[in-house]
Design a protein around this nucleic acid. Sequence first.
DNA 1: AACAAAATCTAAACCGGTTTTGTTTACTTT
DNA 2: AAAGTAAACAAAACCGGTTTAGATTTTGTT
Lengths: 348, 348
Amino acid sequence: MKKSSLEDVAKALGVSKTLVSMVLNGKATQYGISKKTEERVWKMVEEMGFKPNATARKLRTGKSNVLGLIVADISNPFYAKIARSVEDAANKKGYHMLICSSDENPKREADLISILADQHQVDGLIVSSTLDDPQMFDKLTLQKTPFLLLDREFASGLFPSVTVDNRKGAEMLVQHLLDKGVNNIGLITLSPSHLSTLKDRITGYKDALKKNKIELKDALLREVSFENLREDIIKEVDFLLSAPHKVRAIFALNNLVALYALEAIHHKGLKIPQDVALVSFDDIELFRFTSPPITAISQPLEQLGEHAMEMLFGLMNNKDKEGVENGTSTNGHRVVLPVELMVRNSCG
Amino acid sequence: MKKSSLEDVAKALGVSKTLVSMVLNGKATQYGISKKTEERVWKMVEEMGFKPNATARKLRTGKSNVLGLIVADISNPFYAKIARSVEDAANKKGYHMLICSSDENPKREADLISILADQHQVDGLIVSSTLDDPQMFDKLTLQKTPFLLLDREFASGLFPSVTVDNRKGAEMLVQHLLDKGVNNIGLITLSPSHLSTLKDRITGYKDALKKNKIELKDALLREVSFENLREDIIKEVDFLLSAPHKVRAIFALNNLVALYALEAIHHKGLKIPQDVALVSFDDIELFRFTSPPITAISQPLEQLGEHAMEMLFGLMNNKDKEGVENGTSTNGHRVVLPVELMVRNSCG
DNA sequence: AACAAAATCTAAACCGGTTTTGTTTACTTT
DNA sequence: AAAGTAAACAAAACCGGTTTAGATTTTGTT
């Protein structure tokens, strides 16, 4: 049983495929097709179970109703949740998602962008980029591929983006620790260290210290590598908790770091928050269930998805009009969403 | 800056697009194209940054290098991990994934299957199905769309599938409880109750009781609805823990149920495992971090993905040969992977 | 130098839709 | 009754590749 084509339907009715196509696209009236014929078409389409071939349609019209999403790792609950919210928002408009994981590998991400944009030519692209160099996105801009940076952006601020207030969030977290009387705070970030999220969080950390007139000790800012997370974190937790630093709190810059830090602390037989406090940027469900539950910055993941889609559709629709309108580029559109401090019991 | 096409490249070189196409597909030698010409083509392709249009290619060849994956919810860590392992296996063969969430909604899933198979015509489809009726899959079989059931299968066993030994896993879990001296065990399953995974796990529960000559009390098998999980679970946990049943352990049939049950138990001010034991089918990272860590059945998620891809590729390759070969249908291929009991501290 | 064979490359059809342009037929209008 | 005008539909071009069926050039042979 082969699938039936437009032509099959047309032949079965003794009409042209033009006519069938017009009916299916709701242009029957516009092209003066009689009500009677239109009904015959619909009936036959139903009867033969005809479904238009999206590939053929895409080739002619340039529209596939497929969007690309590139994240570091779809199995990380943070991105999984984002993906879901993006998917839901996309579905509402009749779109589906090609989802890819870059594994924080710039080469891989560049390849994925090219595959999705140049080869598959998705209608739009959402990237939580691990790239250092914005040239891929300059290229997308030139090619007029509608795209959007999600969660992470570039320093230039030249591209459309939907992000979260990382700087403010980090400051809130550190301020919370200071309010609890903890002021010797180690920070664990991770490579690739050029990511805007990480840089902004570190800035937030410094902001808080400065506002409270606390001296910044560079030795307390530790960086672990994404490829060697677990071991590196064990090492750094050890470093921070031993003399001479004897830190009283650890600020994990994302949920993965927090998780491994938690393990490392437990493994050393230390108690949270008695021996050391632990806070995390990125709240994940897990943190409500750990012992103790971990204080973290919660990001509005559903809103990230919704805003991203809204903006991306804006870009997609403006694509044609661009240049015809005025000089106001659709670039430069940026949304920064507020975050929330979830106070739990990991800070005493 | 518009993307360049095959024809652009051909014109720039003063050759036919046939030739360029052949070179790009590695058929230069086969079609007797001179080494010199071939090199000129590669150079120009590189220079012009030509990337073949996957849509046009798909229309002619029928191959898109895109696979579909339908799961209940990509934000559920269980499916997120599966998606990732499937993605990795697919990538290795040059494929990418269209990922959709059905939300355990049969209508939605049927729509998604049709969109992916009939409209987008993905090269292959992997479904963790929430459907009760196998007719959609009969249709796919007739249409010769290569597909595979993942995690959940149908009673008939007629479709290719990669699953996990749910029955045995549940039995192991219950046996573990019995070994610990806990023998009044409540079970919480969820709707839709026709899912093979849930049914098999319930059978496993019964197997264990039977082997240990323990009377099965139907009242201890509780079902909560997917749409109303949290509240239903609070209610059922309450029911099981109160007179007259006063259950000593709760067997949560998946990770979501376990999570909410854990919350409900904590909320009642009860201690695990002193007051009640808790075990879960589906191990998720979170269970290592809860207090206490939860004993669970761990499923080999990476292997699920790998086996799924291997089988799907087998089906995709046999598609053409089918009928030419012999009567041995590729249907009926089924893989059942073993599970592992992760003993932690939630059973005393 | 003539002709077959081999080597190299091209024109055109095709995939299945959408869109542009063209053609019938019936109906007015004068 | 001839000309003009809608109304209703169809033919053909197009999207950008791949593939089939030729076409042309080069080489080899006598």
